[in-house]
């Protein structure tokens, strides 16, 4: 995983609530067997509308998505995170994220930042009025900064440490392999097995 320390970029304000993962990346894109090449599928249905914000020339190259509440609901597809990253997004800001999407994002180095709705509204207003306005998401200081706005955000210390260092979860877990083996040795015999061993 690529480390996330600090990022500054222009924004896309997306004023919709309950953006589900079927909207972020429609199911027919899920047939791919790689983690890349999903950028053209991002918000595919909405991008057919030329007025959709992602289609506006001034939003080209924007890297911070400022989304409505309950972003990423629905399916567990990690492809939603890959699509956002493949397109170029480094961070998503919302007042509420769906649990599975949030977990997936943090495992891939896409920083999902939870801010109060009034702050999200202010960031949307700022970046709607000025497409050149930049937002800084600073994981070291746990701050989001933009013109006239400086606000702290929460992220649990363990997730932050892994992101700052770009650490792979599996390697961390395997350091505790002995604990897993100890647990396995104590499992009751009535627990089902898919294979005879």
């Amino acid at each position: 995983m690529e480390a996330f320390i600090k990022h500054t970029g222009r924004a896309v304000p997306l004023r919709r609530s309950n953006v589900d993962t079927d909207q972020i990346i429609p199911a027919h894109w899920l047939k791919k067997v790689t983690r890349d090449g999903f950028e053209d599928g991002l918000f595919e249905a909405w991008r057919k509308d030329e007025k959709f914000i992602l289609n506006q020339p001034e939003r080209k190259g924007a890297t911070v998505l400022v989304a409505g509440p309950d972003f990423g609901t629905g399916s567990s597809r990690e492809h939603a995170v890959w699509a956002l990253q493949n397109y170029g997004f480094k961070a998503v800001i919302s007042s509420r994220f769906a649990d599975i999407f949030r977990g997936n994002s943090l495992k891939n180095g896409l920083l999902t930042v939870v801010l109060e709705q009034k702050t999200v509204d202010a960031l949307q207003e700022l970046t709607e009025n000025d497409p050149e306005a930049e937002i800084t998401v600073d994981l070291e200081t746990r701050e989001v900064r933009a013109e006239g706005i400086t606000v702290a955000f929460e992220l649990d210390e363990n997730a932050r440490w892994r992101l700052l260092n770009g650490l792979d979860d599996i390697s961390i877990t395997l350091q505790n392999e002995a604990d897993i083996a100890t647990y396995e040795a104590k499992r009751p015999s009535y627990k089902p097995r898919t294979l005879k061993v």
Binding site: S76, R77, H79, I100, G103, N108, D169, I170, T173, I180
Partner: peptide
């Protein structure tokens, strides 16, 4: 439900 990174994690560690 889990994401694909977690699928890999469970395959490798069962945790």
């Amino acid at each position: 439900g889990i994401g694909t990174s977690q699928v890999e994690h469970v395959l490798a560690t069962q945790t």
